[in-house]
Design a protein around this nucleic acid. Structure first.
Lengths: 203, 203
DNA sequence: TCAGACATGTAAGTCGTTACATGATTCA
DNA sequence: TGAATCATGTAACGACTTACATGTCTGA
């Protein structure tokens, strides 16, 4: 139980909300956590069995519906493990950014190359930003009106305001980060172009 | 040559600056790329041999110094591969943030728990921010005065302004991101506390 | 002399994705 | 009837870290 196993806790956390199948969990992650988390089936199903083996969850076939389907329920032990993980210090995200790597390594290439990289990055971020702000608007409105947006039924149940609020806040983390990156792109492009001009004037 | 192998290109990129040993590369990554990249020896040395096997680099024992030491030099083919990688579309960083995972999953826990997570995160970011701004100041000054800061001799050679500029800009990406995250923490804490108050007033 | 930096490497294990394999059910 | 979705799983691979193993050289 020592190491990382973040997948374990991602799953336990979702199970702490309500019993779910592997498939449910996959969907939930895609809808709710997609901008900062992902899980593949290849990871999910084996991990679920491990959780059961460790006594952190229970597996039982679903009686409703005719499909082969297994519902996982968190155990008291699982809940304790999850809460313990929550209270444990969080390791800061160590991102590996291919863009930044390229940008840094391009410092001996023509400045046009750096600028092209910058522009490509900016376009990606802009697209992301629009995605985020759309969802942000929907969630903000929902919070205002104290309702649940349709897209979220099944993901967030009952009229829990906190859930909507936290959802909105995690999203807004993405929004703010995106904004910062966009601003940085403009600042960086500006400085690179200033440098081009400076070089021209010195020569 | 199809897939990811970003380590390959990180190394090739550094070798495109000048011939280096595995140890040199490790140091260079730690000093120059540490806030968005890392390489471990377990990755580095085998990859260097792979590069040689693919004809992208050449390995030769160093004649200077008495220590066992191998210098790697990029080949023309290696250079082509590197430049090709640079021009290839960059995949957007998919971060997996343990903090965001915790924060999201804590939405059914007492609000105090969410606030604690937030505060811990803020402290981490604050620390990072101070680290970044210190380096930023040094690099900004160096750029102003057209000199190389001592810490960078060996990392960046000759008086290449572009190198210092790009170095500063990659760093500033971190600075801007940090600022955004700090601002987000404050915004989020504010909104959570408003919610606590709102709940009190409704009850 | 001995700590700390220099220097290279391997083995084992963790973490995660992709692609594949299989099959039921629903609905247009 | 056939495409989409529901649903579970495995095998193979790739990326990366950690810990270990080994030894040299420099300078206080």
């Amino acid at each position: 139980m020592a190491a990382k196993k973040k997948t374990w806790f991602a799953i336990l956390g979702l199970l702490s909300w309500k019993p779910l199948s592997g498939y449910d969990i996959k969907k939930l992650v895609e809808i709710g956590l997609s901008h900062f988390w992902s899980e593949s089936y290849g990871q999910l199903y084996p991990t679920l069995d491990q959780l059961v083996a460790e006594g952190l969850a229970r597996k039982k076939p679903a009686q409703s519906g005719k499909r082969k389907r297994f519902i996982f329920t968190i155990t008291a032990k699982g809940r304790r493990e999850f809460q313990n993980w929550l209270s444990q210090p969080t390791e800061p995200p160590q991102l590996r950014s291919e863009f930044q790597l390229k940008f840094f390594l391009s410092s001996r290439r023509p400045l046009a190359e750096c600028l092209r990289l910058l522009q490509e990055y900016r376009e990606q971020q802009q697209e992301l930003y629009e995605l985020y702000t759309t969802s942000d608007a929907i969630l903000s409105q929902a919070l205002d009106e104290d309702t649940l947006p349709e897209e979220m039924r099944g993901v967030l149940d009952d009229g829990s305001r906190e859930q909507v609020l936290i959802f909105l806040l995690t999203l807004r983390h993405g929004v703010r980060s995106c904004e910062a990156r966009l601003a940085w792109c403009d600042e960086a492009a500006q400085m690179l172009q200033d440098e081009v001009r400076r070089r021209a004037s010195v020569a």
